[in-house]
């Protein structure tokens, strides 16, 4: 028996919008720790890891560790029917081939339930080592969104270079080239407007903008995004979900031939 009640239902709606374009179907793993997911895109170049810790739910019952396979497009369709202020409850009985999403309006005057068919999904789990990254950048998530969107109108890939002077985003295409440099700036009114660069070693890696743009679908979840990079390793793009968990995206770098 699985029963998870999330008072801030809009979080789940935003999570689905953040991952459904990258991954079409995925297994959600439910354990006493929390509700999580790890899935790769169809080309196995990008991976999304979601964690919603059990403490963040108002009610969290998961009698045994289970994995429930869902089509994310269909799940997103159902969650779109929930109001932004609604409380969302996810329910699944043992051995059932369906999951139920229940939406309650804040004043309890409207209660809806949507039942969705589950799927059997063969998924490959990757072991992601805990790594100390050579560079990490914390910046406003809106700023990162803007940079990815702007650069993708010029080129297909972006080189992200971190030095002590700042982080530089470079692209080039048929019409020309573009460089955007962001410097560390922590003297701002609000911490969410700060750009913070931590660098042990300078790093320069190239990535496909198409994927980075897809990751920015998570922008409504967090004001700050963290980019972590080490030479010859996938970048990690992390959006924290309050103090409840995170959505992390991993993207393999492009290699010079």
């Amino acid at each position: 028996m699985l029963e998870l009640r999330l008072v801030q239902g809009s979080l789940l709606k935003k999570v689905l919008e953040a991952i459904k374009d990258l991954v079409n179907e995925a297994n959600f793993d439910c354990s006493s720790t929390g509700f999580s997911l790890q899935a790769m895109d169809s080309s196995h170049v990008a991976l999304v890891a979601l964690m919603l810790r059990s403490e963040g739910f108002e009610h969290y019952r998961c009698d045994r560790t289970i994995s429930i396979g869902m089509n994310l497009t269909n799940m997103a369709k159902m969650l779109k029917c929930a109001g932004n202020d609604d409380i969302i409850t996810i329910k699944a009985d043992d051995g059932s081939d369906t999951v139920t999403f229940m939406f309650e309006s804040p004043s309890q005057d409207k209660i809806s339930d949507f039942e969705m068919k589950l799927m059997e999904i063969d998924s490959e789990h990757l072991g992601i080592p805990d790594t100390e990254y050579q560079s990490s950048i914390k910046m406003p998530s809106q700023e990162f969104l803007r940079i990815c969107k702007d650069l993708s109108s010029i080129g297909d890939t972006v080189m992200i270079s971190v030095t002590k002077d700042g982080v530089k985003f470079t692209t080039s295409g048929d019409i020309g080239t573009a460089n955007i440099v962001c410097r560390q700036n922590t003297s701002v009114d609000e911490p969410e407007n700060a750009t913070e660069i931590k660098m042990q070693e300078p790093v320069s890696l190239t990535f496909a903008l198409r994927y980075l743009n897809s990751f920015t679908k998570a922008t409504p979840l967090a004001n700050i995004v963290t980019l972590s990079m080490s030479a010859d390793l996938p970048i990690v793009v992390e959006y924290k979900i309050g103090d409840m968990g995170y959505v992390r995206y991993y993207l393999a770098p492009k290699i010079e031939e």
Partner: peptide, 14 residues
């Protein structure tokens, strides 16, 4: 010219 590797080469399967 750049080429795109998959994640499998970086992270352990299973």
């Amino acid at each position: 010219e750049t080429s795109q590797n998959g994640l499998g080469g970086f992270f352990k399967r299973g």
